[in-house]
Each structure stands twice: as structure tokens, then as C-alpha cells.
């Protein structure tokens, strides 16, 4: 009889206590998490020893994306920058970071294999003018070469990068999302090399 009462009391305490502790730990783990947007490679890397330069930043060439965020409501998904369409029919097919939650937007195109990169071309939505970014190529996470955005309003920006061997091209933006110029909208990134 006494044992049953004790068991009852302990059972309630254990259920409530374990639930409260797990809820708190889960909550703390959740608020300390902020995942980036990682996509998957869906194709093989292009063969080595290519005789001509190709666009390595394509899904069909095994590229994949790591973006700090995207405009979730309008589905301006980062994969649109490697779909091969430099001026797509709709303005949806561009990458736009999330204005509300992203303080330091970044977009990295990961190549399927270390490659020689000669040129990077960035296609912006010409309606928007923000070009405050640093473009870099890196190998194994270590930056090899960096250049700044041109500051001009051209829709098509070309960067002659001399990266002997790189597996990532990355854009790090410096923006004030609430300013009139605080609009980052990119249709496509081409990474020319072999």
C-alpha cells in the first residue's frame, strides 16, 4: 500500500521532471542552432583534362550550394544560381537572401572537384544595385584569391580570377537590408574553368 503510493508519487515526478528537462534542453539546443541552406550534388564531376573551359557551376557538372539563407516566402532558392539560366523568364528564378533573419548573407558554389578557374561571371537582377560583396575562390575552405564587387550597376559582372586550384567560389555580402540599396538578387553564377 505504502509502496504503491510512493510509486505513484515517484512516477508523476519522473514524468513531469524528465519532460521539463528534455523540453528545456531541446529549447536551448534549438535556439542555439541556425542551419545554412545546403543542397546536394546530383551529378558526377566533369572529367579531368578538359581541352576547353566549361561552366563548372552547374548542377549537371556536380556543383552544389551553401547559402546563408534565402527569401523563404518567395522561394528565391539558391539552386536557381546554378540552373544554367542567365536571364530566366520569371524573376522568381533568382537567389535572394532572407531580409529579416540574415545579417551577413553569403553564397558559396561548391564545385564537384578542385579545378582551374579563369573567370567568374555574376548575373544580377538589373533592377537592383547592391554590389557590396567580396568574391573569393578557395580550396578546402582556405581562400586562394579574393576580389571586391565592382560597385557598378551592370547586370553582368565579370571577374578574371586566377585560381590554379579551387573547389569553391564564394560571395560574402556586406549589406544593410533596410537601406534603399539593400537588395541582393542574383540570377546566375558562372564559374569558367576546367
Amino acid at each position: 500500500m505504502d509502496n504503491l503510493e510512493r510509486l505513484d508519487a515517484w512516477l508523476v515526478r519522473i514524468i513531469v521532471g524528465v519532460y521539463a528537462v528534455l523540453s528545456l534542453l531541446g529549447f536551448l539546443a534549438f535556439v542555439s542552432t541556425k542551419a545554412v541552406s545546403l543542397t546536394q550534388a546530383v551529378a558526377e564531376a566533369p572529367p579531368t583534362g578538359l581541352e576547353e573551359d566549361v561552366n563548372l557551376a552547374l548542377l549537371e557538372n556536380g556543383a552544389w550550394i551553401e547559402a546563408s539563407s534565402y527569401a523563404y516566402h518567395y522561394i528565391h532558392h539558391p539552386l536557381f544560381v546554378i540552373d544554367g539560366l542567365t536571364s530566366p523568364p520569371s524573376t522568381k528564378e533568382q537567389w535572394v537572401p532572407d531580409k529579416r533573419s540574415d545579417e551577413a548573407p553569403s553564397l558559396a558554389v561548391h564545385l564537384a572537384r578542385p579545378s582551374l578557374i579563369r573567370e567568374v561571371v555574376v548575373y544580377h537582377d538589373p533592377r537592383y544595385t547592391d554590389r557590396s560583396y567580396i568574391l573569393s575562390c578557395s580550396l578546402g575552405g582556405e581562400a586562394v584569391t579574393s576580389v571586391s564587387g565592382s560597385g557598378r550597376r551592370d547586370a553582368r559582372e565579370t571577374f578574371d580570377l586566377a585560381c590554379e586550384s579551387a573547389d569553391e567560389v564564394r560571395l560574402d555580402f556586406d549589406w544593410n537590408p533596410d537601406s534603399s540599396g539593400g537588395h541582393i538578387r542574383i540570377y546566375e553564377i558562372m564559374v569558367i574553368g576546367r
Binding site: F30, T33, K34, A35, V36, S37, L38, A67, S69, Y70, Y72, H73, I75, H77, R100
Partner: peptide
């Protein structure tokens, strides 16, 4: 979205 980095948010979050 916070855990995995992708998803869709409705207008309430704008």
C-alpha cells in the same frame, strides 16, 4: 527552416 536551412514561410512571418 532553423534546423535544416530550407522551407517556405507564409505571410504571417513577413
Amino acid at each position: 527552416i532553423r534546423l535544416e536551412g530550407y522551407g517556405w514561410l507564409p505571410w504571417e512571418f513577413s
